[in-house]
Design a protein around this nucleic acid. Sequence first.
DNA 1: CTGATTTGTTGAGGTTGGCAACGTATCATG
DNA 2: CATGATACGTTGCCAACCTCAACAAATCAG
Lengths: 391, 391
Amino acid sequence: MQGSSHDDVRRRNLSVILRLVHLGGAASRSRLTRLTGLNRSTIAALVAELADLGLVEERVPDATNQVGRPSPIVAVSDTFVAIAVNPEIDAVTVGIVGLDGTVRRRIRHPTAHSPSVAEAVEISAALIEGLRAELDPRFRMIGIGVAVPGLVRARDGLVRHAPHLGWVNEPLARLLHEATGYPVLAANDAGLGATAERYFGAGRGLTDLIYLNGGASGIGGGLIVGGQAAGGFDGYAGEFGHTRVSGSDRTDSAGLAGTLEAEVTRSELLEVLGLPGADADELERALLAADSPAVRAEVNRQQDFLAVALAGAINILNPQLVVLGGFLAALLAVDPDRLGAAVSTLTLRAPFEEVRLSAALLGSNLLMIGAAELAFDQLLADPAGSLAASA
Amino acid sequence: MQGSSHDDVRRRNLSVILRLVHLGGAASRSRLTRLTGLNRSTIAALVAELADLGLVEERVPDATNQVGRPSPIVAVSDTFVAIAVNPEIDAVTVGIVGLDGTVRRRIRHPTAHSPSVAEAVEISAALIEGLRAELDPRFRMIGIGVAVPGLVRARDGLVRHAPHLGWVNEPLARLLHEATGYPVLAANDAGLGATAERYFGAGRGLTDLIYLNGGASGIGGGLIVGGQAAGGFDGYAGEFGHTRVSGSDRTDSAGLAGTLEAEVTRSELLEVLGLPGADADELERALLAADSPAVRAEVNRQQDFLAVALAGAINILNPQLVVLGGFLAALLAVDPDRLGAAVSTLTLRAPFEEVRLSAALLGSNLLMIGAAELAFDQLLADPAGSLAASA
DNA sequence: CTGATTTGTTGAGGTTGGCAACGTATCATG
DNA sequence: CATGATACGTTGCCAACCTCAACAAATCAG
């Protein structure tokens, strides 16, 4: 219940404009005027301040075949970048992402074994140092966002539990900050995926969506509720994979029985297809090409369990969109109508009528973008303040 | 992405102060200064404006045994009231609720049969007219909030489906507005219960909680996510009752099989207790007094199914608190440790460690308060604007 | 080339919250 | 009971920010 003052107005207006060009791409000043409801002269002043800060650039107007004086185009500067980090079982990936949402550079550093926290920090810091060295000095690194496959406490970036990495109560954000000097924020990978798809992918502009991702080691998820990334109280929200969907005693990575993650697995799809391994695209192609009854039966089995979890979430959250990533997208692509029908039989009519199922769009850049968004958030919320403080 | 101007600052500050005294009760001006971070002189001006509007009153300071000049007490005026309406299978209840959250008056009008929409509107309008007639003219009715046992489309108050009442696609809010002339907002009853418990009950001050209510006709729920009442895209969120918790083919009121509402029922508790009927308190007393193995077995069975639904919600939403109302509160009270243990075995450790299970506190006033909150919302969001527009 | 249209630019104006100085009401102390 | 300390209300001035109106500039249509 904070009061607000003049400064907050300015702060908020700068933030709104920067977010508009960050999320929506370049826009003319007149367009910003319409979108924000602010006065022409105010927009001019705000854009000038953002330009002074180096955050945006004004370009000569496009030829639009419209009467009237052309309006300058405002675009985010390409000089502000964030570092995205994603530790996994078999690799640590580090990327550089621009404020315009483009992934400029991505390095995947394979590891012989699942890295410890110390190793992940060391590898990340080395990769970041390398990237920094090769980066033109006019670029400015804002901070680091880490996408962690596990439960991360939002307030301090403590990794509570990352089962596949074997990490428990590791102060990842603090360690990486100490190793690099940059501000570091960490969060659950699937939650960041939800944010990325919401801003730049299948859920552009939507306010209520859920995202489920199927990976080699399990199923994670994230949710956007009422326009906000919903992390829950500590940031652990989105664990759709541990929803109970059957009475069986097959257990998942957390030891819970009959859960979505226990029943719906990538490895079983690969097995029935006779593939030793495959990435998400290969798996989808193989599933679409296959016409054996065994494959069909396994797909149906997994779809039915997935439908239970999705239906529960739809009944509870009434989203506009369900985004499926990883092998769950393949499970959708094989027979979208069947999955939709299965969900239909388990949901109330009203929420079902409003929801769509969709595959994730961002592919391999998903987590880079999501993690960068985490790093950019403070800058976007208070452009002038963030830069003044760090200058 | 709206820009903001000076007016918004004022609007927001008035709103913040009114909400503080609305939710937190009377507060001294100096306390408001501390809570909002605003300047003393600003608080004085804002409180004066709210007092001019008749929304708050300043009282002489309490004796506080503190050095320094005493600070006047700011309290919400008792003259602003909202009307709360709650149609049910066997009655229509109408109440008057003050801006201070007190239920001033409540009339339950029993009906011989489940009322049609037209009947519910007619009864409500008549009750409201009666209440208005007996009300001192200095009181001011702000509007009407309706708590509906069913799915209500948030934006226009259309009742999409209220199974127990047999209503489908009924424009309740519009009809009641036409019958009374007051602004009318409608929403799902359990969602409003969640808001009420969050503001005035077991969840005071919390930002992430879920609420489940067990009634004679089923199980409803609501959620608060990140400090906001989460209605979902259309307002249908919170339907925990239709979460699948078993593989059985027992169906619920919506025809869905194996759901929480199908397995966890008030009627089965009454039956095993040998009671023909009972209100929530009587049921809880009877359950606590009973020690037959049959009762114990039924309680355990229902607790286990309830635990599945709660665990799923806890994994997905990471709430601070789970509030149980109606007979679900009784189910908790009989053996809280057992229910907690059952939930524990189905949840991830990190979110489980942060969550508490609690009974609802507001009892029979719950829906009156929740519905009134709906009616007050606009006034609280923009005190000066709301009153200027309606004057 | 002229008029219409749209938008940038500039300077004046109004509202609002912050701030500092001063006034006032209470408590503590002797 | 007088005095000082403390906390808070009150008052007047100030600065920040957005709006508005008038004017200028750039484009299209004819």
